[in-house]
Design a protein around this nucleic acid. Structure first.
Lengths: 349, 349
DNA sequence: AGCAATGATGCACAGGTGGTCAAGCTGGTG
DNA sequence: CACCAGCTTGACCACCTGTGCATCATTGCT
């Protein structure tokens, strides 16, 4: 910048020129190419009518000057910037980062761009994030985690934004929702454990009352009660490895040990398994069966070899893209099936 | 586009009404509040001069209408949108997602916003990503992975963008660089292994020739040669768990087994350790010492308990922010020290 | 009371782009 | 050669906000 400026000064010694703008504008390209600015605009607008000679001149001048169309100004007119904001807390988590990656890739393929907003800091985190999304005239907001207030969601929808909520099981009207059939999967988890003879089951959860986690909890305990299987619930902290480890340490130290555990998250399951094998020397799955949820990458690692339920991240991302590009906004709830992935942490049948 | 047009036609049959804009503009707020649009603008501009009564009227009208300042138009004037683009490949990787999270959080704290761009697809991926960054008039670009061509970096710098390259050990002039002292760490890794009596060392790397990985390789093998320690190099695929596992399977099946391994990445180390313990029943660290690099979260998990070198992600993010907000751009290379984190995968002394 | 100083307000323009419309140009046909 | 059709072009406006400048009200001081 400094350099630019000084060289510029040398070129134009003493004129008033208020500001040295760094970005190249279409006007400058037009002057260099010897055409009107409209021609430049048309050259970069799909479907516009430009002669081949003009287009070549323009492209050449643009290349030489380093011109790039200003999407901000373009969005100013179209009332949509091509930006889609992704609201996420704990984005370093394996599951969230996988979802983020899938969405980002697909957005780019559709000539859109992902604005990632961290919604840590509870409710106002999400509120502030949604406001930012509006500030940048994002065409859509995808809420990966957190609970925006209904009024703010309404504000987004009123502004013409598409809003998609992921994995919130408490349906609020208005935005589209993409979720996973948590209840069915949790029930199936219990049945799987039941079928291989487990009688004393632990439900490993977290203190974060995310709706999808609560749903898994409730469905699992209900299914256990229905089948007459004892079920103890452990929550040792916020969702994560440490909470799983601590939960394992506390629930496995009792006199009557559970012979199976359903962890509402793979991260919890990893911590739980490590506690079981390292701190108590238990053999999995012989002495203890474990089932997780999400199918994060680590679940497939040999150290865990965790039987779990796969959230179809890529299909979900695809459906979200369909929602964003659909002609009409759509307030329906789409629920994907979480398929069990059989690995070695549960005894075969 | 096509759709846009047809729906537009249907919406507005014959009247002139050009478009039903969804976002609220400052003009509408001004009308409702009974003031001029300038007053609205000044109300939302820090340090502008507005009377308290006017401000209250404006804020109230804005609240009622759901007005949000259009950062696109604002950026149009200032020639900078407040957007910082983060270019990253493999963003679901633990290390990259941690860096992404740290940067995003800090950017938000500084009232900026993160545009995440996936640079998968090799060199043109990065090129296209940088172009996008220019399209959105990002004030800065942070390249977390990938090798942009020098000419495109120059284009960004010429446009007034700050460019920061992370963990590229091949210094190209112009942009600021933030890196880690890979060579020193790799040398220290060898010394650590040497000091606990390891004589046959494996270097587990990947087929992706990332500059920082190459540096670690070279420094490690050079140090081994210097101390007269045998070192075999294994590369079983692109950086990741699977490549580490495969590398372990191939290098540990030989007749002369290495008694130590330096994995240039924690992910490789996890795979390598799993191969060693699961496929060969080796005891770590008694029969095999392992050192990793990055200190991703999984390195601290009990299943691995991996001695590794910590990349100070948060400090690096802080320094990057300082680079972005500094008054003058800065083309220097800042090299952080990668500190060893002693855990259980290496025999004590 | 008169004057100066301070502060608030509105007007008009800039900033880069897309779209509309009338006019110019090219080429083909009678 | 005249005429028409269709493509290309350039001028102009709209989009939304920040800001310099002039105007006006208010207040404090002499």
């Amino acid at each position: 910048m400094m350099h630019r400026w000084s060289s510029w000064c040398r070129q134009v010694p003493s004129v008033v020129e208020p500001k040295a703008r760094a970005f190249v504008s279409a006007q400058q390209v037009a002057e260099r190419a010897g055409v009107s600015r409209s021609a430049v605009s048309r050259t970069f607008t799909a479907g516009a009518s430009v002669s081949d000679a003009t287009r070549r001149k323009v492209l050449r001048a643009a290349e030489e000057l380093g011109y790039h169309v200003n999407h901000l100004a373009r969005g100013l007119i179209h009332d949509e910037s091509g930006i889609v904001s992704l609201l996420v807390a704990e984005m370093a988590t394996p599951f969230q980062s996988a979802m983020l990656a899938a969405l980002t890739r697909r957005l780019q393929a559709a000539d859109r761009v992902a604005l990632v907003i961290d919604t840590s800091g509870g409710v106002d985190g999400v509120e502030a994030a949604l406001r930012r999304s509006l500030n940048y005239r994002a065409g859509a907001s995808v809420v990966l985690s957190g609970a925006p207030s209904a009024s703010l969601v309404a504000a987004c929808v009123n502004s013409g934004q598409r809003v998609v909520l992921i994995n919130r099981d408490d349906p609020i009207a208005g935005p589209a929702q993409v979720s996973v059939d948590n209840a069915a999967a949790a029930r199936e988890a219990l049945h799987m454990l039941d079928r291989c003879g487990c009688r004393r089951v632990a439900l490993v959860s977290s203190t974060a009352g995310t709706p999808s986690i609560v749903t898994r909890e409730q469905a699992f305990t209900a299914a256990a009660a229905e089948r007459g299987i004892a079920c103890t619930v452990v929550r040792a902290g916020p969702t994560g490895y440490a909470a799983g480890f601590d939960a394992g340490r506390s629930v496995l130290s009792g006199s009557v040990r559970p012979d199976a555990a359903f962890c509402v998250t793979d991260l919890l399951a990893c911590g739980f398994m490590d506690a079981a094998t390292r701190a108590f020397g238990l053999a999995i799955p012989d002495e203890l069966c474990v089932i997780g949820f999400d199918d994060i990458e680590q679940a497939g690692w040999a150290a865990y070899d965790l039987t779990t339920f796969r959230q179809p991240v890529d299909e979900m991302a695809g459906h979200i893209m369909a929602l964003l590009t659909a002609p009409e906004p759509d307030g329906t709830v789409r629920r994907f099936h979480a398929t069990p992935v059989w690995r070695g942490s549960v005894r075969p049948r």
